[in-house]
């Protein structure tokens, strides 16, 4: 319309516009690159995982039955998934038993009770803990938790065991659980607390019976995120849970056993394919795919819950 008037052209300098478009395209391609990363992950996992299933179906004696054989011994073509999945759940269960009370307690204290001065001193403690690399916690679990704590309680504890690994992983995820659930409680509006006090409720009642339930979906999201992180944690398990090479299904967490990530780490050590057949190497990708799917489902679930508590307030 403006062009019909002839005098006023607001479309701007075409060179400038072209330049702007190029810049925008550069940034867009960087963002699209992240999708490429996801595609590459999925393709590299699925390709070898399918090859794994094919090669055990055709080359291994028991065929696909070796996925439910006796124990996880990839070098001997025994790929019992129940063993490593059960051990993973055991380690995660122990980790959550450690991290849930400590993480949530810390979160409620920091969000509802701590005075600004106390907060400034104590909050960094969790941040420092969050910055400790997982190899360090693996060493701590192997050289301190097992000999100095577990052996004093149960003297039958093996040198490498699932319990110590679980406690180590639990310590690792305390900061995560605490910071996400603190955010959830901070998002609860002040008016809810004030209404509670107005009705004569005491501090503990307000914190635990009003703010906590109001933030529940966020807190559950924090716990799911912690669970997902604990399932995928590798180094603590690789160092402290033992059973390099393979393990039978262990019902007692005081014994050593291989988890999904532990199995991957120990396959990785021999990933030059010196020992064992092709199937052993490929099983690495099959377990990786399983791990990827498990954490993906948990992360998406947690994301949904977080979005819900954000919408509510």
């Amino acid at each position: 319309m403006l062009e019909t008037q002839g005098s006023l052209d607001l479309s701007g300098d075409p060179r400038r516009l072209r330049h702007e478009r190029t810049v925008r395209r550069v940034f867009l391609s960087a963002a699209v690159f992240t999708i490429l990363v996801s595609v590459a992950i999925v393709l590299s996992l699925v390709g070898e995982a399918v090859a794994f299933l094919q090669s055990i179906a055709s080359e291994v004696e028991e065929g696909l039955g070796s996925l439910f054989a006796d124990g996880w011994f990839p070098r001997r073509d025994r790929f019992d998934l129940r063993t490593i999945v059960w051990h993973t759940l055991a380690v995660s269960g122990i980790a959550m038993t450690v991290a849930t009370p400590l993480g949530l307690g810390a979160a409620i204290y920091l969000s509802e009770y701590a005075k600004p001065g106390v907060r400034r001193v104590l909050k960094p403690v969790l941040e420092i803990l969050a910055g400790i690399p997982s190899v360090v916690l693996g060493y701590f679990a192997l050289r301190f938790i097992t000999p100095d704590i577990l052996r004093n309680i149960w003297d039958t504890t093996q040198q490498s065991n699932l319990m110590a690994a679980g406690i180590g992983v639990g310590i690792l995820i305390i900061p995560l659980v605490s910071s996400v659930s603190e955010d959830a409680m901070q998002a609860v509006p002040r008016s809810l607390r004030e209404a509670s006090y107005g009705l004569g409720a005491k501090k503990w009642h307000t914190s635990l019976r009003v703010v906590f339930p109001a933030a529940l979906s966020g807190i559950v999201a924090a716990l799911i995120l912690g669970l997902s992180r604990s399932i995928g944690e590798t180094m603590v398990v690789a160092i402290a849970a033992g059973a390099t090479g393979g393990s039978l299904l262990q019902l007692s967490p005081l014994n050593g056993g291989q988890t999904m990530t532990g199995a991957m780490a120990s396959l990785a050590i021999g990933s030059d394919q010196v020992a064992g057949g092709v199937a052993a190497f490929q099983s690495l990708f099959f377990v990786g795919l399983l791990l990827f799917l498990m954490t993906l489902v948990l992360n998406i679930g947690s994301e949904r819950l977080v979005r819900r508590f954000r919408q509510k307030y």
């Binding site: 992240t34 999708i35 990363v37 996801s38 590459a40 992950i41 590299s44 996992l45 390709g47 070898e48 995120l225 997902s228 399932i231 995928g232 944690e233 590798t234 990530t261 991957m264 780490a265 990785a268 990933s271 690495l284 990708f285 990786g288 791990l291 990827f292 954490t295 993906l296 992360n299 998406i300 994301e303």
Partner: peptide, 21 residues
């Protein structure tokens, strides 16, 4: 959504990506 999910992928899975790609 993709970036959120990438941030949650266990680190050892990135190792598999590195090995293959």
């Amino acid at each position: 959504a993709n970036i959120r999910n990438l941030a949650g992928v266990p680190s050892i899975v990135y190792g598999l990506l590195g090995l293959t790609v």
